[in-house]
Design a protein around this nucleic acid. Structure first.
Length: 138
DNA sequence: TGCATAATAACGA
DNA sequence: TCGTTATTATGCA
């Protein structure tokens, strides 16, 4: 039976789940690369429209690996802007949280910042903290 | 505590 | 569409 080019085999999904399990077990893997190697198209060009947002995401997937973290101002320096709030806006629209490591972006003063649109105490923000703990950051 | 700074959503016209 | 305004996962004086 013919499968559409943009559909994904169940087997592939299982592999993705294994990757995520591996990630949560504490092993250092690059989810973005590993998942893309399974043949799933995660190209940033398709997920983000503006050049501004592409630069931010590219910086993240290329420079912030497992166990590392960055700050909103670091990203600002990297792409030559002081619009730190705009960077947060891009994160909020991240279609692939976890895979694109927006949880590794924290505030310069050491506090967490937000996650998945939430700034107050919430399960989303708590999740961010726990992800960082798993990676040995916080 | 205020202001700068860029993107985006929400409006009206 | 297009201009204006409010909002934002920030940072710094």
């Amino acid at each position: 039976m013919a499968k559409k080019s943009n559909s994904v085999e169940f087997e592939t999904i299982q592999k993705v789940i294994e990757l995520i399990k591996t990630y949560f077990s504490g092993k250092k893997i690059n989810l973005y690369e590993e998942i893309q190697e399974l043949g799933i198209d995660l190209s940033i060009d398709k997920k983000f429209s503006s050049k501004f947002s592409k630069e931010i995401i590219q910086y993240l997937v290329e420079n912030v690996n497992y166990g590392e973290f960055t700050t909103y101002s670091d990203i600002g320096n990297a792409i030559n802007t002081k619009a730190y709030r705009a960077i947060g806006n891009v994160m909020q629209k991240n279609p692939l949280p976890l895979i694109i490591p927006c949880h590794r972006v924290i505030r310069k003063n050491g506090t967490l910042g937000g996650f998945m649109g939430e700034t107050n105490e919430s399960w989303q923000k708590n999740l961010k903290l726990n992800l960082l703990k798993i990676e040995g950051i916080k």
